[in-house]
């Protein structure tokens, strides 16, 4: 059965095909994650440990609004470890096993392969945020988020940035073991400036650096969305904070664009010989 002219598939069909391919790839990737206890522990455990440590300081009364703090911290750790670190190691493992090379010879496109690989990591991160919200409400009596859309936008944009950074970081990572080293710059800088600590603790120039970083902006947006106030206490209604939201979204959008460029430019799909 051959046809010389083939009707171009409609957009809906194309999207359906994309979803099917991503689904198949992410199911396999989830199986692989389940069979890799170290990666699983890292993705699930590290954010929890981080939050327990932060929670300890919250009990001491050093953090305002402990409920929101838990959600924000859990999300931040999840983006760094469940998404970023975890995805660097799994992409490098697939690359070194020549799996990525094979996948690229099939019907799935590059974007589908990347999303398929990232889906389990994203699911874990989002699950942790949701669990964090539940815990914050039950344990700390956190009220309804002031602006849930901001929270969702922050999580989605943050996920996109760290997925793309992970893909780009594989270029500096020759082996799965090396991921511990190669992910250090992103993880350390994000944690140092990530706004997990009060912003006014950062002196001038360092504040500018912090505000240019994606995790800081994710944390800012989430805080605003959850509590209705910026971290220095002004409410969302203020002109200043509306400008702040726009700036945060802009910074994150810029990181997404930079991430796409870095991914296309730097990621290799097969091992270096």
């Amino acid at each position: 059965m051959t046809t010389t002219t083939q009707a171009a598939p409609s957009t809906a069909n194309r999207l359906r095909g994309s979803a099917r391919r991503i689904g198949a790839l992410s199911r396999a990737e989830a199986l692989l994650l389940r069979r890799n206890p170290i990666a699983l522990l890292n993705a699930l455990g590290t954010p929890l440990v981080g939050v327990v440590l932060l929670n300890a300081s919250a009990q001491n009364g050093s953090l305002p609004m402990p409920g929101a703090s838990v959600v924000v911290a859990l999300t931040a750790f999840a983006l760094l470890f469940a998404v970023y670190y975890n995805l660097v190691t799994s992409l490098v493992a697939r690359r070194e096993e020549l799996v990525l090379k094979r996948l690229r010879s099939g019907e799935a496109g590059d974007v589908e392969i990347l999303i398929g690989a990232a889906t389990p990591a994203m699911a874990i991160a989002w699950g942790q945020t949701i669990v964090g919200v539940g815990a914050a409400v039950v344990v700390f009596g956190m009220g309804t988020p002031a602006n849930p859309i901001l929270v969702v936008a922050a999580v989605l944009l943050g996920t996109a940035v760290f997925v793309l950074l992970a893909a780009a970081s594989t270029a500096m990572t020759r082996s799965v073991e090396m991921a511990q080293l190669s992910t250090l710059p992103v993880v350390a800088v994000s944690m140092a400036f990530g706004g997990l600590f009060p912003a006014d603790a950062q002196p001038g120039p360092l504040l500018w650096v912090a505000q240019a970083l994606p995790l800081t902006r994710v944390v800012d947006l989430m805080w605003l969305g959850l509590t209705g106030t910026t971290r220095d206490g002004s409410s969302v209604g203020d002109g200043a904070s509306v400008g702040g939201i726009a700036a945060a979204l802009l910074v994150l959008a810029a990181w997404v664009v930079a991430g796409v460029l870095a991914w296309r430019r730097f990621m290799r799909w097969e091992p270096r010989r």
């Binding site: 396999a28 199986l31 020549l98 799996v99 996948l103 099939g106 019907e107």
Partner: peptide, 21 residues
């Protein structure tokens, strides 16, 4: 030269590929 994830079974590998076709 190409590879398959070594932690999947033969069937799981083929099923993953089939899902992309």
């Amino acid at each position: 030269e190409s590879g398959c994830p070594s932690d999947l079974s033969v069937t799981e590998t083929v099923r993953m590929s089939a899902g992309t076709l």
